[in-house]
Structure formats: C-alpha cells, structure tokens
C-alpha cells in the first residue's frame, strides 16, 4: 500500500476544501445582489479568490509531500492513550458549554476544572479539588463585581 507523506495528506485536504468551497459552500452560502456592476466588486469575488488560493496551496503541498522526507515531531501512537484523553477532553468541553446556562458558569467551571485535573492524572488531587472550587469563585468575584460582566448564574444555586 502506498503510504502518503503527511504533507500530501494536508495538500489533499486543502485542495478538497478549496473544491468544496468553490462548488458547494460559496454558491450556497454567499449571497450577492443581482446588479453588481463589476465582478471584482461582487461579494463572491473574494471567497472565490481564496478558494482558488486554497486549491493552489493544496496542490503545492501534495507535490512537496511526494518529494519530501521531512520527519514530523511526533508520530501517532508515540504517547499511549493520547487519543482517548483528547476524546474525553472534547467531551468535557462539550459538557462545559452545555452546562454554562444550566448550572451557571461557576459550578460548570468547578466541574470542568476537577474533570480536567483528573484527566491530567494530577499528583495533587486534594489541591486540585480546592483550586477547582476556589478559582472559579475568585474569577466570578472579579468579572461580576469588578468588571461588571453578567456571569450566567444557572438554574440551581445562585451566587451573590
């Protein structure tokens, strides 16, 4: 099986992105008035130019990848369990955004802090728990009472 260099894979992605933009995304999601006097002034001109540049960069990357022996810093699989941890962090991030209006920013942050510290295999679990509670509360104090930001309070426990 032919093993493509990572630059070539990037190039295929870039050229593909340019193609999708040109044939699907720009015609569908960029609106333009019917009476534009000159093509270069149209709202479509700039996105199409960039899509073209994306394809060019992609083709360049494919060509360079075919002739390159550059080694990237780390190969996949070098760090055990890395993909699983990144996946769990993504879940934490999604849950964090979802919990902001429901639990409030402070309590959502407490949970996100604790979960991330656990994911990072903290050698100091007690300190992590203390910080997980204190740090979001201190930030709440600053942003809500000094900067005057309306921090989401959530539906359960409200802070002064």
């Amino acid at each position: 099986m032919i093993k493509l260099h990572r630059q070539s894979v990037m190039g295929i992605f870039a050229a593909g992105l340019g193609g999708i933009l040109s044939f699907i995304a720009i015609p569908r999601w960029v609106a333009t008035p019917a009476n534009v006097p000159n093509i270069v002034l149209s709202p479509l001109f700039w996105p199409y130019t960039l899509a073209g540049l994306c394809v060019l960069a992609g083709l360049g990357l494919i060509w360079v990848g075919l002739h390159s022996n550059e080694r990237f810093n780390e190969d996949e699989g070098e760090v055990s369990g890395a993909f699983a941890r990144v996946f769990f962090f993504s879940l934490i991030a999604i849950a964090y955004v979802w919990a902001l209006p429901v639990l409030g920013m402070v309590w959502a942050s407490v949970l996100a802090f604790a979960a991330t510290a656990f994911l990072l295999k903290s050698d100091y679990p007690k300190l992590a728990l203390v910080c997980a509670v204190l740090f979001p509360v201190v930030l709440y104090g600053f942003f809500a009472h000094v900067a005057g930001v309306a921090i989401p309070q959530g539906e359960f426990v409200r802070l002064p």
Binding site: Y96, V97, L100, P101, M105, S109, A112, F113, A114, T116, A117, L120, K121, S122, D123, Y124, L127, A128, C131, A132, F135, P136, L139, Y140, F143, A147, V149, A150, I151, P152
Partner: peptide, 25 residues
C-alpha cells in the same frame, strides 16, 4: 506549580475571559 493545576486553571480562565467580551456563550 503542577501542570495538572495550572492547565485546568487556564481552561476556566479562557471560558470566563471569552464570555466576558460579549456576554455570549
């Protein structure tokens, strides 16, 4: 400062900081 304390702090700080710009989740 342990990284396992530092980086969760940065995560929380990022969320507070970004929200504070427009009060927008």
């Amino acid at each position: 400062v342990p990284r396992s304390i530092l980086f969760p702090s940065i995560l929380v700080l990022c969320v507070y900081g970004v929200f504070a710009v427009n009060n927008n989740i």
